[in-house]
Design a protein around this nucleic acid. Structure first.
Lengths: 195, 195
DNA sequence: GGGCAAACTTGCCTCATGGGCAACTTTGCG
DNA sequence: CGCAAAGTTGCCCATGAGGCAAGTTTGCCC
């Protein structure tokens, strides 16, 4: 599943990754909005036109990692026992996803720092998550003995919003505590009655 | 509070409203992405340059109503007794905000229909709400006897995500039941343990 | 190994857009 | 009534998205 078989596909993935990294690197160097797509394409040694073949815009390219991370989360979720209650499956998947690296990827931290300052990135991130919300909601409904579509969607939305919020908050505080802990705390807040 | 005193301010508001409505009208007629800013400005009898003075882009103009609605929500929240527990204050504010009209504004319904089909609108909406999240979180923290900043933010995010999700869901189902009910149900889902 | 088709990249072009600037018009107020 | 502030507009430019067609690379079958 990991190994993309054909050379063509491996190259494609490499290009995509290169563009993503070029975007991040330049954005951190010069500030996100002063970076042009031309510059990014240059940095990745492809034409500007090729950039457009891979990403819709700078935001999209920068947040490519987010897409991957969320995909990972979804995979973990699907791998969990089918009879596990939805919220527990979500929590455990999140735990697995965020616990993996002892110290977080510096690239990712850089991305988060940018995210905080640029509303256009926030918007794009939300759009990415919204696209996932449906799949997430389906997965949730599949585990619910009395599936209520709206409840499933709300749960999916709450889950994603919590992760996004906690991550943002964690980034702003230079908290020494690991992110995975913060996520668990946040999720438990979201899961317990707000009263 | 309602009456803007000066002529200047009334005119400004009228222009803004005209641009918003022109955007909605044209988007419903021709489809959101085939409408140009030029056409909108024309329809509202101002120059394209003036459009830019009021809104960042088409999405922003279309979602002007959302901004207003959210502002209303915040006002209602602030008007509530200071010692009311946060989640209850939120729920009641939402109830007041959504119960007001017996049958929803057809313009708003049109807007919601567009929202569903256009990710760029979803993104913009999320950005608007994100900008709001801080104020909401502050209001929440102010009501919490043991304020935990992260918890307040999570609560704000959960609240907004729930409203957004329920509204979207309600729009997709032609449910005969009123939106305000759906919102209350959704909020109660979000507030009760997901277990 | 050769060769063909599909996939990918690139350059070129066009149209839309955001926003700076400066001239002009409208409104507020002393 | 007249000036200053606020708002509008036209002009301009840098950037961007994406269609199209020519050129290049890769996959695959003979």
């Amino acid at each position: 599943m990991e190994t993309t078989i054909t050379l063509r596909e491996r190259k494609k993935e490499a290009t995509r990754q290169a563009l993503h990294e070029a975007t991040l690197r330049l954005a951190l160097e010069r500030g996100f909005d002063t970076v042009t797509v031309d510059a990014i394409a240059d940095e990745a040694n492809v034409s500007r036109r090729t950039f457009s073949n891979y990403f819709l815009n700078k935001e999209d390219a920068l947040l490519y990692g987010d897409r991957a991370r969320i995909d990972g989360l979804l995979e973990r979720l699907r791998a969990r026992p089918a009879d596990e209650p939805p919220w527990q499956a979500l929590t455990r998947s999140a735990a697995a996803q965020f616990a993996q690296r002892r110290e977080p990827d510096p690239n990712w931290l850089g991305q988060l720092r940018l995210l905080r300052r640029h509303p256009s990135l926030l918007a794009q991130q939300a759009a990415i998550q919204a696209a996932f919300e449906h799949e997430l909601a389906n997965e949730i409904a599949a585990r619910d003995p009395h599936p209520d579509p709206m409840r499933a969607r709300v749960m999916a939305a709450v889950f994603l919003a919590t992760i996004r919020t906690v991550t943002a908050h964690w980034t702003e505080q230079k908290t020494p505590s690991p992110l995975s802990e913060a996520i668990q705390t946040g999720l438990s807040h979201a899961a317990s009655p707000f009263t």
